[in-house]
Design a protein around this nucleic acid. Structure first.
Lengths: 228, 228
DNA sequence: GCAAAAGTGTTCTTCGTACACCCATGC
DNA sequence: GCATGGGTGTACGAAGAACACTTTTGC
């Protein structure tokens, strides 16, 4: 038994699907690899250390490959097909996160030459089974958005109702009726209207809202049904 | 790199939460251990082989420890805290299954002295983090029952509406109004009324139903919202 | 005939849905 | 003054929720 704290578990990795919202497009963070398969795009990922909780490994690896930290991550699924990784057996645990991508400064780690936000509808060819992993994570995100409030992580602190609607539309890939969307979301008592509006826009300025944290936390626990 | 097909991955196991319905009680299958920690109750589980897909390992291990096979299993979550397993690092992938427990002949494997169905509300003290794993699996099952038809796996081929209602009540831990439950479930076109009733019961005989397989499969894909 | 569970309808309220026009702002 | 997106209400139908009595059977 080897308790060297840097000893890695060579058969267990984590990969992260980082979702961000760019205006009305849902994007995912990909890196261009400088290790095998060189030049291919992949999810940020790496191996778990022997002394390290799985959840913590996911966070460390994300920080290491992209410079992001303090990101809330949730486990999605574990991919364990024999031949999913070339040359040896590697089982990977996928985590996903939702972040407000405009705030982040991306710093590629030693295993990536570039990191980029890529539109979920326009993914390039990906290494390993990473395309499949993203598909599964997206399905999970879509289920989540229908049963729990999301947005807190994906939007800036102040946002307009249109931004929130665009978020739901981008995640679910459908369009909503503006009046019905507002009616439904406002009735939840989830949003706090602020005494502040957009400035410098060439059209009527939209009011800003923020999340009512109490309701947000309560609804996270209790769940709801969002269908329009 | 070792490709001996029997080489195990010593740091990766699977554990299974097998749910069954006993009349109006939701039960889970536990085994009494003959390996460490001897005498404690635990979920059926074991180590993944190097040449073996994760999903297949889960099925092999369940067969080996309980004699059950051809059970549909679904991955729930992967538990990877450093100290969850004593003495060395083991990450476990949990799978759950729903079965019609009365049909099964349980045959304890070499790692169990007894296997028993235990009421989900009366779990004994369990080895490792298995209590936590069951809690997570139950939450997942409760989410599933609200968005997809279940029952096909948990009930006999012919069942009464009361049995189906008891299933929902056992899983969700709440009582439903009989008239509203029937109205809702019958409107889904999910059930086929049979020309057959209970016999030998000391009260009015209930009609038997079976699942309409076409609708069942369609609703599995499409999903629904079940709330009463 | 009695105990025990099966079976059945109506009313009220809430919620989803469809739909079109005026408002505020920058240029 | 025009282009652009912000913001608002109503009517209809569907679905959820609450609620009590009769029926059938075995003993």
């Amino acid at each position: 038994m080897d308790y060297n704290p840097d000893h890695i578990l060579p058969s267990i990795s984590t990969d992260s699907i980082i979702f961000g919202l760019d205006d009305d497009k849902l994007k995912v963070l990909l890196m261009k690899r400088v290790i095998e398969p060189v030049g291919k795009w992949s999810l940020p990922g790496g191996f778990v250390l022997e002394h390290e909780d799985l959840d913590i490994a996911a966070r460390r690896i994300l920080d290491h490959t992209t410079g992001m930290n303090n990101v809330y991550m949730e486990q999605v699924h574990t991919f364990g097909e024999v031949d999913r990784f070339p040359g040896r057996r590697v089982i990977t645990v996928a985590y996903y996160a939702l972040i407000n991508y405009t705030l982040e400064n991306l710093k590629p780690g030693p295993e990536a030459s570039e990191i980029h936000w890529v539109d979920i509808t326009q993914l390039p060819e990906l290494a390993f089974d990473h395309r499949h992993i993203i598909d599964i994570a997206l399905v999970r995100l879509q289920a989540k958005v229908r049963t729990e409030p999301i947005g807190f992580e994906l939007l800036p602190a102040k946002f307009t109702l249109t931004q929130l609607q665009r978020l739901y539309e981008a995640v679910l890939g459908t369009a909503f009726d503006t009046r019905n969307f507002r009616k439904k979301i406002l009735k939840m008592n989830l949003l706090l209207p602020l005494n502040e509006s957009q400035t410098g826009v060439p059209h009527r300025a939209a009011r800003y809202y923020s999340f009512n944290n109490d309701t947000y936390v309560k609804l996270k626990k209790k769940g709801f049904t969002f269908e329009l």
